Every structure is written in C-alpha cells, then in structure tokens.
Simulated assay, not measured.
Amino acid sequence: MKGAVRKRGDTWSYYFNLGLIDGKRKKKEKGGFKTKKEAEKALRDAISEFEKGYIEPTKVNFTSVSTQWLEEYIKPLRKITTYSRYKEMNKKYLIPYLGFKEINKITALDIERMLLDIKKNNISDTTLQGIYTLCNSIFERSIKLHLIQNNPCKGVERPQRNKKQTDVLEVEEIPLLIKTLDLENEYDYMFYVAFRLTLELGLRRGELAGLTWEDISYGENVVSIHNNLIYNYGHTYMETTKTKGSTRTIYVSNELLEMLTQLNKRQEFKKNEYGEFYENNIFNDKSYDLVMRWDNGKYIHPMYYTNKIKKVVAAAGIDKTIRFHDLRHTNATLLIQQGVDFKTVQTRLGHEDINTTLNIYAHVNKEMQKNATEKLNNIFGGKLVAKK
C-alpha cells in the first residue's frame, strides 16, 4: 500500500487510500507535521496500523461499544449472573461518566476522575475495584476489535480493596447455636440441615441450595457438587458451579448420611401428604429433585440462609458478625486446626487456585495462635533464657 505526503502552508500532511468502506471510497489524511520527514514517518506508521486491521473509528461512543460487548460477547459466553452484574454496573457507573465520549478519545485522566468521583459516594473498595476491572475489560476488547490502539486504564492505578477479617465460629460456639433451634419447627429444622451440611462440607450457599438427591452416593460416602442455585437481581437461576474447580466430589461422614436419610424419609412422607399440591422445582425446563426444600416441595430460597443465620447467631448470644458464607470459612479453619493440609482443603472447597485458599484462610484464630506459640516454646525450652 502506498501513500503520499504534501505541504500545505507551513506544515506537512500525509494521506493514503482506505479503499471501499460501506460502499464508498475513502482515504485517511492527517496534517500538522513540521517537516517532511515527520510526515513520512507518520505515514509509514499509519499504513502499518491499517494493515494490522486498525481503522480509527469516527463518533463511536462508549455506550455503543460497551453495550455491544455485553450483548454479543458476555451474554452468550458467561453466566447470566456475570452478565447481569456487568450490565448493572455499566449502566449505573460507566455510562453516566463515559457514555457520551467517543471510545478513542477517552483518556486515563477521564478514568481517574470517574473513579475518584464514584468513590465519594462511599461505595465499597470491592465495588470500586469491580468498576475498574469492568472498564479495563471493555477497553481490552476494543483493542482486539481494532477500535483503539491503547487502553487508557493502563495509565490508572487499579483500586485496592481492604482485606476484611472474617469471623468464624469457635468449636464451643457451635452447640450454642444449635441449641437455639427448635427441630420440631420446619424452618429451624431445615436450617439445622443446612448448617450441618455446610459445616462439614464447606459448601457455598448456591451449591447447598442446588444439591440434589442424585448427587448423594450412600455406597461410596460421597456428595458430588455440580449445581449452583443463585439469586440475582430479583430472579433465581440454576447454573453450573462457579468454576471448573468447584465441580467436585467430597467424602461425607456416616453421621451426615444418616441425617440425610431421615430428611429423605420426611420428604417422601410430606410428598404423599401434599399429593397434587406438592411443588416441583423446574429451572431451564428441567426438574430438580432438590435436597434443600420445604415440606410442600418448593426450593428453599438462597436468601433464607443469609437472613436466618443473623437471627440464630443473635439468639445464641454470640457477639460476632457471622454471615452464612462464614460457615464455609469455619469449615476451612477447623480443617486447618486439625492439621489437614492446604491442598486437601483447596480440593474440598473447590478453589481452582491454591493461592485463593491461602489468601482467604491466611488468618488464624486465637486457639491456632496459642498452639503455635506453645509448639515454639516446647522447641526452645529454656534455651532462650539468659544465663547470669
């Protein structure tokens, strides 16, 4: 491909033909160069970029690019929860600040000002980091589509989030919590089942809610995890597990299997009792024989566990902020306390990367610290005592 340079007044410019675009013959021209040499170099660079597939967009704004990215790239390839979260974040944060700007004219300063302004609304560090990550992904995709040459997010420092010290239950607090439950009450009984399952298996909330009777193998003492029942923006969905590593098989105790056996008998009795009024749980045109369901057959909403744990912890007089997800943290902490290696903990929890396990459970409770100190003292003995 050839082009040419020419002088106009006191400056030089270059031009070259782009060919037919949308049925019209077009060319690219740019001026303002002080010397012929500068214009010739700019011409060579421009032709090189064009031959790689880059065409400078005209009046393509951020709203158009981000919406297309969501609908044509994220929606078909990612989970519905991811798509919904990205769409909401794009609408609420990115478009109000960047939507009207042409995609190739957005600068690092624009991104930085946006993040600083959003931060004034007292949003969490996690959300701010998510906004940056989403913005960065949109610009990275724009580079691959040859809409822009450089990602302006690269010139902005990625927001950091403060690591929260999560609360976990101590061993002696577990029976206190159980004592608050009335097992004759349907709602307390099902929470007790959820509590036992999560403490022993370290399940995520959605994995617990999506567990089916087909997932339980009594002969092998294992439970298979491959469903994820989630609540997102007013809708409940059945999806596959969070990651490939989350699809796993966990060995379970005989005691837990016995509890599940009793639950299964209860459900069969209730199914006969309700007869034609017994509810089936259908997601994506598929029926699921869920373990976690009410007496009338209807699935237990994921938010039930979130709301119930607060009431139970308060009733037990435990002065901690325990989320339902912290039962999963408690499971991991108890395993580590008992000397279970991190690789086994990683497998049971379904973390793809062991660093995730190490980062989340790097904190230790007082008992673990006490044991560590005692072991060191046993090693040192009186060797650290100064001799007179």
Rank of each mutant, 00 (worst) to 15 (best):
M1F: 10
R6E: 10
K7L: 04
K7I: 00
R8G: 08
G9S: 13
G9R: 13
N17L: 12
I21G: 07
D22Q: 12
K26T: 05
K28V: 10
F33C: 11
K34Y: 06
T35W: 08
K36P: 06
K41N: 10
A42F: 08
A42G: 02
D45T: 13
A46E: 11
I47H: 13
I47S: 14
E49W: 11
E49A: 12
E49V: 00
Y54V: 05
Y54E: 06
T58P: 00
N61D: 15
V65P: 07
E72H: 12
E72W: 01
I74M: 05
K75F: 06
K79C: 04
K79N: 08
S84V: 12
S84C: 10
R85C: 13
R85A: 15
G99D: 04
G99F: 09
K101E: 01
E102K: 11
N104S: 14
K105Q: 13
K105G: 00
I106W: 07
T107E: 07
D110L: 03
R113L: 11
M114R: 07
S124G: 12
T126E: 14
G130V: 02
S137D: 04
S142L: 03
I143Y: 03
H146I: 05
N151D: 10
N162A: 11
K164Y: 10
T166S: 05
E173F: 07
I174Y: 11
I174H: 12
I174T: 14
I174A: 13
I178C: 02
T180E: 15
T198K: 05
E200Q: 15
L201T: 15
G206I: 00
L208V: 07
W213T: 09
V223W: 03
N227P: 11
N227V: 00
N228A: 03
Y231K: 02
E239L: 14
T240Q: 01
K242V: 02
G245I: 00
G245P: 07
R248F: 02
Q262C: 13
L263R: 14
Y274S: 07
G275M: 13
E276T: 07
I282N: 03
D285P: 00
S287Y: 02
V291M: 09
R293G: 05
Y299T: 04
M303D: 15
K308N: 06
K308G: 04
I309K: 09
K310M: 01
K311I: 10
V312N: 13
V312H: 13
K320L: 04
K320E: 03
T321Y: 10
I322S: 08
D326F: 07
L327Q: 08
H329M: 08
H329Q: 05
T330E: 03
T333Q: 08
V340C: 01
D341I: 00
F342K: 09
T344E: 04
Q346A: 01
Q346L: 02
H351T: 04
E352P: 02
D353M: 00
N355H: 13
N355K: 14
T356H: 06
T356G: 04
T357P: 08
T357D: 04
I360R: 12
Y361P: 03
E367V: 07
A372M: 12
T373Q: 11
E374V: 03
G382V: 09
L384D: 13
K387V: 13
